[in-house]
Amino acid sequence: MIQKKITFAAKDTDVLEWNGDLLAVGVTEKDVVKDDNNNFTNPLLQKLDALLGGLLAEASSEEDFCGKSGQAIVLRVSGLSFKRVGLFALGQSASRAAAFVGLGEAIAAAAQASRAVSVAFALAFSADLSDEWKPAIASSIAIGIVNGIFNGRARRDRKRMRK
């Protein structure tokens, strides 16, 4: 069995310029609110949607994505520095570590489904977070990603054994 190496790095970078497979964005219900022209009011989502030519707002409307906990949208995009973009919902607010662990697990599932090798995540509401909470939140998301990877692998192994 080949062991895969998992590495994490925290970087202060413009995620819209990140180069990789899956750009995952954690959102709350407040973040996905749109104006009368179907444009996001959240600054990060505005920039991301503009980069995608309105595809994100359109897909979120079609999928009735409103940021409720557990909702996710992952889109394949082309011509950008990343191959896929996903919105992963945390519900009304993200105030518990368990919500961020769940976010990490959802990101891991999407990464595995799309065979992503590299994943970057950002929180649409990061400007609202105090600097003292950011390491704990990043740690909870990382724990969720690791849980999601290994739980997903265990499920696949059990499924293969049944065949």
Score class of each variant (00 low, 15 high):
A98K: 03
L123R: 05
G67A: 04
K30A: 15
A10G: 14
V33Y: 09
Q46H: 02
G91D: 03
N151S: 11
S81C: 09
E62R: 14
A99T: 01
L52D: 01
W133R: 12
A111L: 06
V146W: 04
A116Q: 05
V101S: 00
G148V: 01
K134W: 00
F88I: 02
D49N: 02
A138F: 07
S126V: 07
A106G: 14
C66H: 13
V15E: 02
A99P: 00
F8A: 13
R153K: 12
A124C: 03
A94P: 04
R156Y: 07
K47Q: 05
E29W: 10
L51E: 13
Q71I: 02
R153H: 08
Q112H: 04
A57S: 15
A10D: 15
N42Y: 10
G86Y: 08
V117I: 07
L23A: 07
K4G: 15
G70E: 10
V32N: 11
D131Y: 06
L16F: 03
A138G: 07
S81Y: 05
E105T: 02
A111G: 11
L55R: 13
A10Y: 12
I145K: 01
V74K: 09
E29Y: 07
E58L: 09
F65D: 08
L22C: 08
R76Q: 11
F65N: 10
D64L: 14
L55Q: 12
N37M: 13
N38R: 15
F88G: 00
Q112D: 10
K47W: 02
L75I: 12
G20H: 03
A113Y: 07
I137P: 05
I137G: 04
I6Y: 14
S114L: 06
R153Q: 10
F82N: 05
L80A: 07
K30C: 08
R153V: 08
E132Q: 06
G148F: 01
K83H: 03
Q71L: 00
E17V: 11
I107E: 05
A57F: 01
S95W: 04
E62K: 15
T13R: 02
G53W: 02
G144I: 01
D157H: 06
F150N: 04
E58M: 12
F121C: 10
A89H: 05
L90G: 10
A110V: 04
G54W: 02
N37G: 11
V117W: 05
V32E: 09
V25I: 15
I145E: 00
K30E: 12
K34N: 07
F82L: 11
I2S: 14
